[in-house]
Amino acid sequence: MKTCLVVDDSRVIRKVARRILENLQFEVLEAADGQEALDACKAAMPNAVLLDWNMPVMDGITFLKHLRKEQGGKDPIVVFCTTENDLSHITEALTEGASEYIMKPFDGDILEAKFQEVGLI
């Protein structure tokens, strides 16, 4: 079973994403900010990270930059999932090594299609 770390400061969003991902046969882990996510990744690298941008303590893009410097940190496939929907944010995310980008609001169809696009499903 593949693992996906859901990183979002909203408990509701984490719950929605968890339900969708579990239906897609993922084992789901949760983190409420970038620092928590980084700690979780250091403990065990997930196959995928669904990543919010704006969060307290450490935001998504800072987490991604740190993650890619960790040992084995280039392996997880990172998919952003954020309300930031302008080209400059999207381009920055792709430059830093995100594979896909979901603009909120999202639904199960979009998440599934994006995960298919990057070969996670």
Partner: peptide, 20 residues
């Protein structure tokens, strides 16, 4: 719409071929 460009379109193609 944002919903339509997210259905089936890879993000790299959206960045390359669309403007907001």
């Amino acid at each position: 719409t944002q919903f339509e460009v997210q259905r089936g379109l890879p993000i790299t193609m959206m960045v390359k071929n669309f403007e907001k």
